[in-house]
Nucleic acid binder design. Structure first.
Lengths: 209, 209
DNA sequence: ACCTGAACACCGTTCAAGT
DNA sequence: ACCTGAACACCGTTCAAGT
């Protein structure tokens, strides 16, 4: 009876504050966007003073850094659980589509993951590691598609290319530069964009280059 | 003698404050980045009170909105002055490389142009118009490459695809996700990435799809 | 060990003035 | 018409406390 308070009331400290701050931040992120997400507001949401957050995260950058790391870990997990058997084209299409869908499902998180909030070189190790994990999955997929070693130049370039294309498309859609017409599904839009690449390559074949 | 002061001294107002604020903002943008660029600091740089800026721009969003518009106009101009004669592959390569170089030459401006600072739908008309101009040039290039009408679905998809790929690559490099090795030129890096796409398409051809 | 309150520097923005 | 000064609300961050 004395250990667990029978009803919620103002407690001096909450206990596992760090994860609570994270989930509050995660929720607010999609509400207010990556730029306006403030440490003070996150603390207030949890019902704690702003300074309390500083006992768990060094500063705002570290807090949102962990948020972004969470995003990359989820992305890596999504890319990892592909079913490896299938034709090369199918594997490629499925993986990039998974990526595209992840970005569209978490637009603010995705913007944070690749946003300008993190000045180059000012990223926490957890974020860098998570990003590497996501990139590793992408390269594994490309190795599978090309049937080449994970470290070969071909696979490296293919991963770079696939990532650029998919990230670019996702960014432009999230940012509102490109709009998916209401009568077109996410999947068809994505495939139309892939076809655009084909057109360009065919045009290149035809001119004698 | 009375019209033009013989030496610079504290004048009550400066005259053409708007363009001065813009160029100060442009300079500071690449110094502090798109997130930390503040209206107050810009005003101070010009030597004017923060409130003075509000007589020329409605708020910070409008100020940086014009900055981003400037960026899109410069990008459009860079894409426009291509020499139209040449093989399709060459035209495509040159245009996308021009795009890539523009982004790399103005990293903070580029991040601002596509950044999360502008919540969807909160963009000034000048910015939307400038962005359309840039996109128009890209589509013109694709129409030339594909030898198809500017409004055809093929050209639309190709422009979307080319833009996604180039924007994605530029973003990842600027953000530091991808690093160009010091012994590799910008151009070779770009071409290596293009080759990555080819590998993937060839793999697709080979599997009987 | 974990949290609070007061304080500082900075920011965007507004409003009543000044020239 | 164009600019300033004081003020407000918000922010990140620090420091001296409290339990």
């Amino acid at each position: 009876m004395s250990k667990t308070p029978d009803r919620a009331r103002d407690t001096y400290h909450v206990g596992n504050l760090a994860p609570q701050l994270m989930s509050a931040a995660r929720a607010m992120l999609e509400e207010v966007g990556p730029v306006k997400l403030s440490l003070r507001a996150v603390a207030e949401r949890v019902g704690v003073s702003p300074t309390a957050a500083y006992h768990h995260y060094a500063n705002r950058a570290e807090l949102i850094g962990h948020l972004a790391a969470q995003g990359f870990n989820e992305l890596a997990a999504a890319l990892a659980d592909r079913n490896g058997h299938g034709q090369a084209t199918e594997t490629l299409r499925q993986s990039t589509l998974t990526y595209f869908r992840f970005a569209r499902s978490n637009p603010a998180l995705y913007q944070l993951m690749f946003g300008a909030e993190f000045s180059t070189g000012e990223m926490i190790p957890a974020l860098l590691a998570a990003r590497e994990r996501a990139f590793f999955e992408l390269r594994s997929t490309m190795a599978e598609v090309l049937q080449s070693p994970h470290d070969s130049p071909e696979v490296r370039r293919a991963a770079r290319a696939a990532w650029s294309f998919t990230h670019g498309l996702a960014s432009l859609v999230i940012h509102g530069v490109l709009q998916i017409p209401s009568n077109v599904t996410e999947e068809r839009f994505f495939e139309g964009s892939l076809q655009g690449l084909e057109y360009l390559f065919k045009a290149g074949d035809g001119d004698g280059a």
